[in-house]
Design a protein around this nucleic acid. Structure first.
Length: 646
DNA sequence: GTTTCGGTTCTTTTT
DNA sequence: GAACCGAAAC
C-alpha cells in the first residue's frame, strides 16, 4: 500500500486534528473547512498506524454522509477499510439490536416502521380510543410529540404539556394514545425510528455484558455532526467509548439545525467539561467561499451569543458582494431567479453549479411553475420520501409479511389494494387469523381466498403461485425477482387503473428492483428501505449533476453540500425565519443558524431574494417585512439589485 | 354496512 | 399532491 502524504494533503489545522493523540478529541469545524476530509484522513491515519478497521466505529447522521466518508476512506486506504462499522446512529443501533433483540424483549425479525407506518399506527390507536374527533390533535402531530419525548428522554406528559400549552387538549388522552401505541408496536414486533435509538441505549444500560463486548471491540469511535446529537445518542456514544476513551467528535455548533427533533447542541458545548482531558482543535480556514460571502455569514451568526467563538477565514480572492434583491411577490421572485439563471448560463455557468434553497417546500411553488413554463430542467428534492410513496410501499407488503408474520400494517395495506376490500374487511380477517399470517402455509392462503369478496378472491388466486414461489424458488434471496412477479401478476394493472401518473410510478418500481440488487436477502433489504428515507434526494442529486438540471432543495437537505451559485428564496420575516417555528425560546437562534448554513453553501455568488407580499388562498394579500437576518447585516456587505417589471 | 368517489383544504425541517 | 370529509354506489 502506498503511503499517504498527510502533510501535503492537509493544512496545519486539519493535520493536527488528524494526528491527534489517543483520548477524547473535540474538533470544531466551521463550514467549508474540510470537516469530511479531516474525518476520512483520520480513519486513514488510524489504519496506517496498524489499527484494524473493524475496531473503528464511525457514526453519522445521514446515509449520504456515511457513504461519502466510507467511499473516500476506501479511496485512501483501499480494502483495508473493509471491516469498519460506519453508518447512521439508526443503522448501527439496528445492527446491534438484530443480534440482541431478545435481551430487550423483541424478536430479531422485528419490522422497522417508517414515519408513514408510524403515523398510521398512531391513527389506529387514537381511533380505537374514540379520540379522532375535531378537538384532538392529528396523528402526525401526536407522532411528532411522541418522537420528541423519546429523543429528549422526557415523559410524553411533559412534552405534550409543553406542546399544547395554549390549547384545551386533554393531556391524559394523549398519554392514553401513547400507551396504546407503545403496546401496539410490541404486539406487531415493530420498532419505529425512535425505538431504534431508545432500545439501542436500553441495551447498553441494562446489559453491561453486551455493552462490554462493543466497548472492547471498538478501539476508536468517531462521530460526525456531533452538534446534532440528542441526549440518547450522546449517552450511547459516551457508553460505547467509555472503556478505551478514544472518542473523536467533529461538529460545528453554528450549524446545529435539528433541535426540533431533539438535538441538543449543549452536547458539543459541554464536551470539554465532560471530558476534562479532551484535546480541542479548531478548523477555521474556509476554502469554499469568496470573502464577501463569508463576511455575510460571519455577520449573521454574530447575532447568536453563547457559542464557540470562531471566524471563517477566507483564502479565496475577493470578487463581488452577495446580492440582495427586493421583489414584489413570489411571482416576480420566480421570474427574477429564472432571468438570473439565464444570464449565468450565458456566462458559461452550468445548471449543476446552481441551486435554489428555501426554508420550506412550498416556498418554491411559483418558481417550479415558472421553470416548467420556461422549459428549464429542474429537480426538486421533494417532501415525499422515495420509499414512503404509496406504490413503493405497496409492492413491499408481501415481503414484509414473509419477514414478520405479525406485521399488521403490511397485511392491511396489501388487502386494501383489492377491490371491495377496505378497512373493516381487513380488520375482520386479521382478527380471525389470530393477528398473524403465515404465507408459507397453503391452508392459510386458501382460507384467505375463501374469505375475500369474489373480485378480490380472483386476484388473490392469481397471486398464490407468486407467494408459493417465495419458498420453492428461494426468492428470499432475490427480493427483486419476487417484487417483479408481484408487479407482473397484479400491481402493474392496478397501478394503471389507479394512478394517472402510473408511468413514473412504475419507473420508480423498476428503480426499486435495481436497488434490491445490492442486498443478499430480503431481511437486509427491508431494514435498509426503512432506514434509507432519503434515497430520492440522493438520486436527484446524482441526476441533477449528470443531466445538468438546476436543483431546488430545502436548506436542511443542502447541509454539507456546495454550489458555485446559490439563490435563497423568501428572505422575508415570517417565511425565513418561519413564523411557525418562532414559538419557543432558542428558536430564533436556530433559524439564524439555518440561514448561516444556507449562505455558506455558496462558493462564488449568493442571491438573497426578499419578496414583499404573498397572495393568500382566500384572495387576500399578506405583507412581509424583510427578514430580520437581512436587516442584521451591515448594508455595506451586500449589493442591492433593483428590478423593474419582469 | 362498506367501499368508492369527488370536492376541499393545507403544506417546516429528517432518521 | 395527498389527506380529509361527506355523499353516492354497491
Amino acid at each position: 500500500m502506498s503511503q499517504i502524504d498527510f502533510e501535503k494533503a492537509l493544512n496545519a489545522e486539519q493535520l493536527a486534528a488528524v494526528q491527534a493523540p489517543d483520548g477524547p478529541v473535540l474538533v470544531i469545524a466551521a463550514a467549508g473547512t474540510g470537516k469530511t476530509r479531516t474525518l476520512t484522513y483520520r480513519v486513514a491515519w488510524l489504519v496506517e498506524h496498524q489499527i484494524d478497521a473493524s475496531q473503528i466505529l464511525l457514526l453519522t447522521f445521514t446515509n449520504r454522509a456515511a457513504r461519502e466518508m466510507l467511499e473516500r476512506a476506501q479511496a485512501l486506504v483501499g480494502a483495508a477499510v473493509g471491516g469498519l462499522w460506519g453508518g447512521t446512529f439508526h443503522h448501527m443501533a439496528n445492527r446491534m439490536l438484530r443480534r440482541h433483540a431478545q435481551a430487550i424483549g423483541y424478536k430479531s425479525d422485528y419490522t422497522i416502521l417508517d414515519q408513514d407506518d408510524s403515523r398510521t399506527l398512531v391513527r389506529t390507536c387514537a381511533d380505537e380510543l374514540d379520540l379522532l374527533g375535531k378537538h384532538f390533535p392529528k396523528p402526525d402531530v401526536l407522532q411528532s410529540v411522541f418522537s420528541l419525548s423519546v429523543n429528549r428522554e422526557e415523559p410524553v406528559e411533559k412534552t405534550a404539556t409543553g406542546h399544547f400549552e395554549d390549547s384545551l387538549v386533554a393531556i391524559e388522552d394523549i398519554v392514553k394514545v401513547h400507551e396504546a401505541y407503545q403496546a401496539r408496536k410490541k404486539t406487531l414486533n415493530a420498532m419505529d425510528f425512535d425505538d431504534l435509538l431508545a432500545n439501542g441505549l436500553k441495551l447498553f444500560r441494562d446489559h453491561p455484558s453486551i455493552l462490554e463486548q462493543y466497548q472492547h471491540r471498538f478501539l476508536y469511535t468517531l462521530v460526525d455532526e456531533y452538534q446534532d446529537t440528542n441526549t440518547i445518542q450522546a449517552e450511547w456514544v459516551d457508553r460505547i467509548a467509555a472503556h478505551h476513551r478514544n472518542l473523536l467528535v467533529v461538529g460545528d455548533d453554528f450549524q446545529s439545525i435539528y433541535s426540533w427533533r431533539g438535538a441538543d447542541f449543549r452536547n458539543i458545548m459541554s464536551f470539554p467539561k465532560r471530558y476534562a482531558d479532551a484535546s480541542v482543535f479548531k478548523l477555521e480556514t474556509n476554502y469554499r467561499s469568496v470573502p464577501g460571502i463569508l463576511e455575510v455569514a460571519n455577520a449573521c451568526i454574530a447575532g447568536n451569543p453563547e457559542q464557540f467563538q470562531k471566524n471563517l477565514k477566507a483564502v479565496r480572492e475577493a470578487t463581488v458582494k452577495p446580492v440582495c434583491v427586493q421583489l414584489h411577490d413570489g411571482g416576480q421572485q420566480a421570474r427574477y431567479v429564472v432571468d438570473r439563471i439565464r444570464r449565468l448560463l450565458r456566462k458559461g455557468v452550468s445548471m449543476k453549479d446552481m441551486v435554489v434553497l428555501y426554508r420550506s417546500h412550498f416556498h418554491a411553488m411559483e418558481l417550479q411553475m415558472e421553470l416548467a413554463r420556461e422549459g428549464m430542467p429542474y429537480e426538486v428534492t421533494s417532501g415525499v420520501r422515495f420509499f414512503e410513496q404509496a406504490h413503493i410501499k405497496d409492492v413491499c407488503t408481501l415481503l414484509r409479511l414473509f419477514f414478520n408474520a405479525e406485521d399488521e400494517l403490511a397485511f392491511m395495506r396489501l388487502l386494501k389494494l383489492f377491490p371491495k376490500v377496505g378497512e373493516k374487511t381487513c380488520i375482520k380477517l386479521w382478527e380471525k387469523l389470530g393477528r398473524q399470517v403465515n404465507l408459507r402455509n397453503a391452508e392459510q392462503l386458501k382460507w384467505i381466498r375463501e374469505h375475500l369478496p369474489a373480485a378480490a378472491a380472483r386476484i388473490w388466486e392469481t397471486l398464490e403461485p407468486v407467494i408459493i414461489a417465495y419458498e420453492t424458488e428461494h426468492l428470499r434471496n432475490d427480493p427483486g425477482e419476487f417484487i417483479f412477479r408481484f408487479v407482473k401478476t397484479f400491481y402493474r394493472e392496478y397501478a394503471i387503473e389507479t394512478f394517472d401518473n402510473h408511468d413514473r410510478r412504475l419507473d420508480d418500481i423498476d428503480e426499486l428492483m435495481n436497488f434490491t440488487a445490492r442486498f443478499e436477502s430480503a431481511e437486509q433489504f427491508l431494514s435498509e428501505i426503512a432506514l434509507q428515507t432519503n434515497l430520492d434526494a440522493e438520486i436527484d442529486e446524482m441526476d441533477a449533476a449528470e443531466q445538468n438540471r438546476i436543483r431546488l432543495t430545502t436548506v436542511h437537505q443542502a447541509k454539507g453540500l456546495e454550489w458555485k451559485v446559490v439563490f435563497v428564496l423568501w428572505m422575508s420575516d415570517g417565511m425565513f425565519p418561519s413564523s411557525r417555528s418562532l414559538s419557543d425560546s432558542g428558536a430564533e437562534a436556530e433559524e439564524r443558524r439555518l440561514f448561516y448554513v444556507a449562505s455558506t453553501r455558496a462558493k462564488d455568488e449568493l442571491y438573497l431574494c426578499v419578496p414583499e407580499m404573498r397572495r393568500m388562498r382566500d384572495g387576500g394579500v399578506m405583507n412581509y417585512p424583510p427578514s430580520r437576518f437581512i436587516r442584521e447585516i451591515n448594508p455595506d456587505l451586500l449589493q442591492n439589485d433593483f428590478v423593474g417589471y419582469i
